[in-house]
Amino acid sequence: MSVMPQFLSSDHWISHLFSSQAAREGGVIRRKVRDVERYVGRERFLDEMKRRGFPVVENAGQFVIFCNREPIRRVA
């Protein structure tokens, strides 16, 4: 992902998030919870993930976003 400008609106931040190659190809991306809360807010972020149908998990201060609609299975 490219370097972010100093100021981004929440819409631009979300666009920037999904411009990464992994996101475009239906892969997995992660972002620090504190960054999400600072740039767009938890509620707006989770609303956008729900709108896109992308599952999100939170662990150890990170959001892990599955940029596809495939089911998630915990195997271990």
Score class of each variant (00 low, 15 high):
20 S>N: 00
52 R>L: 12
49 M>H: 02
31 R>K: 12
33 V>Y: 01
19 S>D: 12
43 E>F: 06
43 E>A: 15
17 L>A: 09
37 E>F: 01
35 D>I: 14
25 E>S: 09
13 W>P: 02
23 A>S: 14
18 F>R: 08
65 I>F: 00
43 E>L: 07
48 E>K: 04
20 S>G: 13
17 L>M: 09
63 F>A: 07
69 R>Y: 03
16 H>K: 14
4 M>T: 09
73 R>F: 14
7 F>C: 07
54 F>G: 03
1 M>R: 11
39 Y>Q: 07
72 I>L: 13
23 A>G: 05
50 K>E: 13
27 G>E: 01
18 F>K: 08
68 N>A: 05
19 S>Y: 07
2 S>A: 10
12 H>P: 10
56 V>I: 11
23 A>C: 01
53 G>V: 14
4 M>G: 12
9 S>D: 01
26 G>E: 04
61 G>N: 05
63 F>G: 00
29 I>G: 02
50 K>P: 01
74 R>N: 12
57 V>Y: 01
76 A>D: 11
65 I>N: 00
33 V>R: 07
32 K>W: 13
57 V>F: 11
76 A>G: 15
44 R>F: 03
4 M>W: 10
55 P>D: 05
56 V>H: 08
4 M>F: 12
38 R>M: 05
39 Y>M: 11
62 Q>V: 01
67 C>Y: 03
17 L>C: 08
12 H>Y: 06
72 I>N: 04
